[in-house]
Design a protein around this nucleic acid. Structure first.
Length: 597
RNA sequence: GGGCGCGUGGCUUAGCUGGAUAUAGCACCGGGUUCCUAACCCGGCGGUCGGGGGUUCGAAUCCCCCCGCGCCCGCCA
């Protein structure tokens, strides 16, 4: 890999925007308005239509120099020096509209796509390593789809960050301490025939051993155990003792095995969505290696540490802007055991030691936890903080969250099974030529793509409405729409009979409106990836993928490629560039590519 | 009660640090297949951007108040 790559080698716009900014800055100076090119560049906007590729709203500048905005825009437009890559500059109202040299722009874009290939969309490699922690659901049972948004956001962010040039390690923080996992161990350490009747009732008539997925099989009694323990003090006491044992490092040998087995099943579900992890961090390991104890010592010595009457330790956090009702953050219980937040401090210190960027993907119910964690980090003099990507829950049509106990949970596996089944019916209807295994492969990809896209397309801070019909939609703004456009491009390339990366083209062959619009959308991938990787707003990539497919479909209907005579080679090159760019984008959002469907 | 988040056409949704006529999808209505995959395309209908004030040349975007929904306010995780 070339290490001396610059942004100009990666992003088509880099060859134009700095020059446009220079030219406009020079013109502004002649018009009596000083503004450095770099600052002006920050105010440039994408042209909103056919009338401009780049626009500069002159209002702000006009104000600072006390001129009339329309007047200034007009004078800037008139004073722009002839600039390589710029075709013409006009003013409309208070806007300075810049039209780029279309042939140069097309050349630049197609060249970069060809040269970068599978890496198109990314930027130069950057030093440092990022850690993205996501999912981290307790290993107590199967994923319901309320939890999967975290995994999809985190995984997509990891893909975007990786593409944009970061080295990324994804981590799953697995909780093998605490009551939840204790209850799993508590029930499974007894033979089934000695389970309380109320819990045994959860198991389908003696079929407990037949289900193959461990998360489902082992997690099944969990909701009932949780209920049972609430109403049976003697059971609660046993579970309580187990919690103590876990924290004291005296976990029964089956404990970790159970957790790992359930987690294995959960991860198998996520793998169907293309989600995998680089590392798993077990919470108990932070106790075992003494790092939690070290944090406790530092917290006890912190400026606002206080000892409660019963012996517990806390931080007086009234200075940290937390809700006034809970100005104290307990970090050590009266019995000397630690809390989740305390252990999380140890976890984050470890992350800061190893990584240059630390991102946590959290549900909105963890917002306060995040602020608490920040406060504790500040208390022990740690200067760094994690970045939080916080998302709202997935909600059901009637309102409300998905709950395992309330019976409103939809298991991820069931959703995927249903999606794949419907996709299979759909494929079978259209394709009579396919063998069963080819058909299955397409159905898997379509089903998984539909589900992943459905959840990814909404901005993280808005709730996702879950409806079966929409999650399983194969039309319009949906995963299969993208796959279909990609398959179409693939089909044209196959039929052209020429195997290559982006072939030769003549930019002047591609000056039609559809072609120019398509090139323009393709050119935006690098800046979008960079933005998504930085901000975590990965849903924008889902929208962008749709825009490419949409533009390509219009081009497809309006412009013949194969058999189009002397323009065929250029048009093929454009199809190849689309195929490459849309394919890269599908990889980024984790929707499987399909060469045929 | 307090804190945080959200509120855009019938439904779902885009809108980057305020900028030119507010995105798209679903649904609905009307068209398109002798032509590279119709899971597609073209046209139409539909919005006082929750309500009210304010800042500004300009507000869906920023500020304040109110209403609605969600989450949190544990020596749980």
């Amino acid at each position: 890999m070339a290490t001396d790559l610059s942004w100009e080698d990666c992003d088509p716009w880099e060859a134009f925007l700095p020059r446009v900014a220079e030219a406009l800055s020079a013109a502004a100076r002649r018009a009596g308005a000083e503004i450095p090119a770099a600052e002006l560049r920050g105010q440039l906007e994408w042209g909103n239509s056919e009338q401009a590729d780049v626009a500069f709203p002159a209002h702000r500048l006009a104000r600072t120099v006390g001129q009339d905005a329309r007047e200034l825009a007009l004078r800037i437009a008139r004073n722009v020096p002839s600039t390589v890559g710029v075709d013409r500059v006009e003013s409309t109202g208070a806007f300075v509209n810049v039209t780029l040299d279309a042939e140069r722009f097309i050349d630049r874009t197609l060249t970069i796509i060809r040269d970068r290939g599978a890496r198109y969309g990314g930027g130069p490699a950057r030093p440092g390593v990022s850690c993205i922690e996501h999912t981290s659901a307790n290993p107590t049972g199967p994923f319901h789809i309320g939890r999967v948004r975290n995994a999809i956001l985190g995984d997509t962010l990891a893909r975007a960050a990786r593409a944009s040039g970061e080295k990324v390690v994804t981590q799953y923080y697995a909780d093998d301490l605490g009551r939840q996992s204790a209850m799993i161990t508590w029930i499974w350490s007894k033979p089934i025939d000695r389970w309380p009747e109320a819990i045994r009732a959860a198991l389908p008539n003696g079929a407990e051993a037949t289900e193959e997925k461990p998360d489902r099989r082992l997690g099944r009694p969990y909701p009932l155990v949780s209920q049972y323990v609430k109403n049976h003090p003697e059971a609660a006491e046993e579970v309580g003792r187990l919690v103590q044992d876990l924290e004291g490092g005296r976990a029964p040998p089956t404990h970790r095995q159970l957790a790992e087995e359930i987690l294995r099943g959960m991860c198998a579900s996520l793998r169907r969505l293309g989600i995998e992890f680089d590392e798993f961090v077990w919470e108990s390991s932070l106790l075992a290696d003494g790092s939690v104890e070290a944090v406790v010592q530092r917290l006890k010595a912190a400026p606002h540490a206080v000892r409660e009457a019963n012996g517990a330790w806390a931080i007086d956090a009234s200075g940290y802007g937390l809700p006034k009702e809970s100005p104290r953050i307990i970090f050590l219980r009266h019995d000397g055991t630690t809390l989740y937040t305390t252990r999380d401090v140890a976890y984050h210190l470890e992350k800061f030691r190893r990584f240059d960027r630390v991102v946590d993907v959290l549900g909105q119910d963890h917002r306060l936890h995040a602020r608490t964690l920040d406060a504790l980090l500040a208390e022990i003099g740690e200067g760094r903080r994690p970045e939080y990507l916080i998302y709202q829950d997935l909600v059901l049509p009637g309102g409300g969250r998905m709950s395992t106990r309330g019976g409103s949970a939809v298991w991820l596996d069931d959703l995927l099974d249903e999606a794949v089944k419907r996709a299979r019916d759909e494929v079978r209807r259209r394709r009579t030529d396919l063998a069963d295994d080819a058909l299955d492969a397409i159905a898997q990809a379509v089903g998984a793509g539909a589900v992943r896209y459905h959840i990814l397309r909404v901005a993280p801070d808005k709730p996702v409405q879950f409806r079966w019909e929409e999650a399983l939609s194969f039309e319009g703004r949906a995963g299969p729409f993208l796959q279909y456009a990609y398959a179409r491009a693939a089909s044209i390339l196959r039929k052209s009979g020429v195997a290559r990366a982006v072939g030769r083209w003549t930019a002047s062959d591609l000056l039609g409106v559809e072609e120019r619009a398509l090139v323009k959308i393709l050119s935006r991938l690098p800046s979008l990836v960079a933005h998504a990787a930085r901000s975590g707003q990965v849903h924008s990539l889902a929208g962008f993928a749709h825009d490419i497919a949409d533009r390509f479909n219009r081009f497809y209907h309006a412009v013949p490629v194969l058999g189009s005579g002397d323009k065929e080679a250029s048009r093929l090159a454009l199809v190849e560039a689309t195929y490459q760019t849309l394919g890269n984008t599908l990889d980024l959002i984790g929707v499987p590519r399909l060469e045929t469907m």
